[in-house]
Design a protein around this nucleic acid. Structure first.
Ligand SMILES: [Mn+2]
Ligand SMILES: [Mn+2]
Ligand SMILES: [Zn+2]
Ligand SMILES: [Zn+2]
Lengths: 149, 149
DNA sequence: ATTGCTACTGAAAACCATTTTCATTAAATG
DNA sequence: CATTTAATGAAAATGGTTTTCAGTAGCAAT
C-alpha cells in the first residue's frame, strides 16, 4: 500500500486506517465520470480484488461520505449513487440534469456564476431568517433528454 | 362519497375511480403542513377507516404523484415523504431547508422570486445546450437548525 | 521483527420500505 | 339490477442496505 496518495492525509487525520479495499474503492471513484452505485463499485473493485465484499464497499462509502471525500445522491432509481467530491481531483462543483425516462445524468457547470451568486445570497438570507447553519445544497433539474423527449 | 371535491375532476379525467381510501388519503394530505411518509398517512387514515391497508396507501400515492396532485421527496431518512402540490389548495411553490441532525424540514418561500427568475434562466440555458425538455427541479439546502447547531 | 491492541473485514443473516400476487369487492355505466 | 373492470387488503416477495460475528490485518509500541 502506498501512503503517498492525495487522500491519505485526510484519511489518517480522521483516525481511519489505510486498507486495500479503501484504496481500491477510491481508485474506482477517481477514474470514472459516472455516478456509480454501491454495486457498480463492488463489481469494478471485484475485477482487481475478487475478495473484497459488498459489505465493505457500503461501509467504506459511508466513511467517505462522512469525511466529505465523496457525495451521495438519490436519482430516484432505487439505489444511492456516489461521486467524488469537488476539491478532490480537479473536480468542479456542479449540479445535475436528470432524465426521468432513461435515467441519464448530465453534470453541468454552466451558468454557475449567476447560480452561485444567488445561492450565496439565498443561503445568507435563510441562515439569518431561520437561524440555520447551512452546510450544503442539492440542485437537480428533471426532464427528458434529447433521446427521450 | 361526495363527488364535489376540488380534485374529483382531475381524478376522473385521468380514468381513475373515486374511492373511499383515495378520498381519505387526500384528506389527510390536505389537512397537514408536514411532510408525511406512507406509514404516517396509513396511520392517520387508519383512525377513521381501520380497514384501509398500507398497500392501498402506497398505490394511491403513486397515482397522486403521477397525476401531479402531490410531490414525493427524499429527505434521506430512509423513507419517501409526500406533500400536496402547489396549485392544489392555496399552497405556494417552495423549497426546503433540511436539518441534517434532527431531520427537521422547513418550507421556505422567501427569496423564491429571485430564485424562480434565475431558475427560469438556467432552465432555458440548459434546455438549449443539452437539448433537455426540463419539467421540474429539486432544490434543498442542508444544514443545522437552531436547536442542533 | 514481534507483539498486542483494535479497527477492519467478508459471509451470512437480518432489516425494512416498497412492490407484487391473487382472490375478493366495489365503482361506474346504462 | 347486471355487467364490466378497476380497486382493494392480506400475505408473500423483493432488493438495497445494515447488522452480526468470528476471523484478519493495520500500525504503534516494544
Ligand atoms: Mn455529478
Ligand atoms: Mn414542503
Ligand atoms: Zn433519457
Ligand atoms: Zn435540527
Amino acid at each position: 500500500m502506498k501512503n503517498d496518495n492525495w487522500w491519505c492525509g485526510r484519511f489518517r487525520g480522521c483516525g481511519y486506517k489505510l486498507t486495500v479495499p479503501r484504496e481500491a474503492i477510491l481508485d474506482v471513484l477517481s477514474l470514472t465520470d459516472k455516478h456509480l452505485s454501491a454495486e457498480d463499485i463492488y463489481l469494478a473493485v471485484h475485477k482487481k480484488y475478487p475478495t473484497i465484499g459488498l459489505t465493505t464497499v457500503y461501509r467504506t462509502l459511508d466513511i467517505l461520505v462522512s469525511i466529505g471525500l465523496i457525495y451521495k445522491f438519490d436519482f430516484c432509481d432505487g439505489r444511492a449513487r456516489f461521486e467524488l467530491a469537488e476539491d478532490s481531483k480537479g473536480k468542479k462543483h456542479h449540479h445535475h440534469l436528470v432524465c426521468t425516462n432513461c435515467g441519464r445524468i448530465v453534470d453541468y457547470t454552466d451558468f454557475i456564476d449567476d447560480e452561485i451568486e444567488l445561492l450565496q445570497l439565498t443561503e445568507k438570507g435563510l441562515s439569518k431568517k431561520y437561524n440555520f447553519k447551512i452546510t450544503g445544497h442539492l440542485i437537480q433539474f428533471y426532464g427528458l433528454c434529447d433521446k427521450c423527449r
